[in-house]
Amino acid sequence: MGRYDFRALRVRQNAKALVDSKRNPALPLWYNIVGDIPPSETLARPVLRAPRPKGNSKPSRMFQPLPIVYPEDRLRKDFFGDHPWELARPRIILEDSGNDAKGYDWSRIEQPGKPLDGESVVQRQLWLMQHEKLPKAQAYDKARREFYRHRHLEAVKRRVAKEEALSTGAYFGKGPLEVGMELEDQAFEHWRNWATQQIETEQANRAQMMSGPQNETQELSEGELDLAVEEVAESIPATNEGKSALGGAMLHP
């Protein structure tokens, strides 16, 4: 076994060999088919770029595919560099038949069946550069202005359509901001209820603390006072026994 397993590619030769060595009684039914329609050549690497050895270095990357570059690429980079939010607009990239781009005529920026987007500007700019022989910057300016104008018209159309619809009784429901504000209001109300409850319980606790049973802090009776004084008297700091007892029953009842 080498690095590659060519058994899949050599099914015909193997079938023949098996029949020749009488392992198999007959050739499979696909034997002639695979002979007539042979598998294509595999593992052949076409030379994709001319070797350019520098000095004594060996030619490298000769068999690696080359990048595909189009003249629009730079224009696209410029436009989307200047208008990065154009990339945030939703866009349909599904192809209908694969011939979608063949029906476009870039002598005007609007195309039937294609929404206006940054790609329109790029294609229009390229068309202006190729057909009207405008310099790049000028073509960019022209295409850009047309784009802005159509975007403005679109906004106007949208507004007018909305007004018309409203005038004939349409109801569009709540907008995202209204929905957001409602949710925020709900959250605030919830918090307010919670906070009111907290304040009430806190106040109740405090009131209970103030008006609770007072007899917990007991006054020392005469006898107890005497005892305590005696305890303290025993631990006078001057003596050895008194040093450990800091304070006493009277100080910490």
Binding site: Y4, D5, F6, R7, A8, L9, V11, N14, A15, L18, P28, W30, V34, P39, S40, T42, L43
Partner: peptide
């Protein structure tokens, strides 16, 4: 599956993406 087919001398047709090995199948 493809290995079993190769062992048993059964021709195979496979859809080979750029990360697949074309020698696994007879007709990529």
């Amino acid at each position: 599956l493809l290995h079993e087919c190769a062992l048993n001398n059964i021709p195979t047709i496979g859809v080979i993406d750029t990360n697949a090995d074309p020698t696994w199948v007879t007709y990529p």
